[in-house]
Design a protein around this nucleic acid. Structure first.
Length: 110
DNA sequence: AAACTGACTAATA
DNA sequence: CTATTAGCCAGTT
């Protein structure tokens, strides 16, 4: 398994996400201090599991949709958690990033 | 050390 | 809106 401290930074960034908000992988990566490593964020979160103090369910892809497969034990669980926090899902299972994305600061290139 | 993989993103069709 | 392509880089094998 990974012995890098990058995971710890990613987890720390995810922990900073306010309740009722979501953040994209790229955004979390940037907050973690490793811009460009959106995939690493996903990789790190995939290593997680229940019992962690990291609100991994608040992390979604840039399209505002859950990247995980529609597994009732994983993806569906994430959706339920977000809905429980007040996040509204669209009919296609997509989140309205316009309202729920954690806008602390946006990418400079957009 | 080299190849393969991946919970991504942005651009294009 | 979805599908496809290319770029990206650490982690895993």
């Amino acid at each position: 398994m990974a012995k890098s401290g990058l995971y710890a930074r990613i987890y720390g960034a995810v922990k900073r996400i306010p309740k009722g908000r979501v953040a994209t992988y790229g955004q979390v990566a940037r907050l973690a201090g490793v811009p460009g490593h959106a995939r690493l964020v996903g990789y790190a979160l995939h290593s997680l599991r229940e019992g962690t103090d990291v609100p991994w369910h608040r992390v979604v892809n840039a399209q505002g949709r859950i990247s995980l497969p529609p597994d009732p034990e994983a993806g569906g669980f994430q959706r339920a958690l977000l809905e429980s926090e007040g996040v509204v899902f669209g009919a296609s299972g997509s989140i309205d990033l316009k309202k729920h994305q954690w806008k602390k600061e946006r990418e400079s290139l957009l």
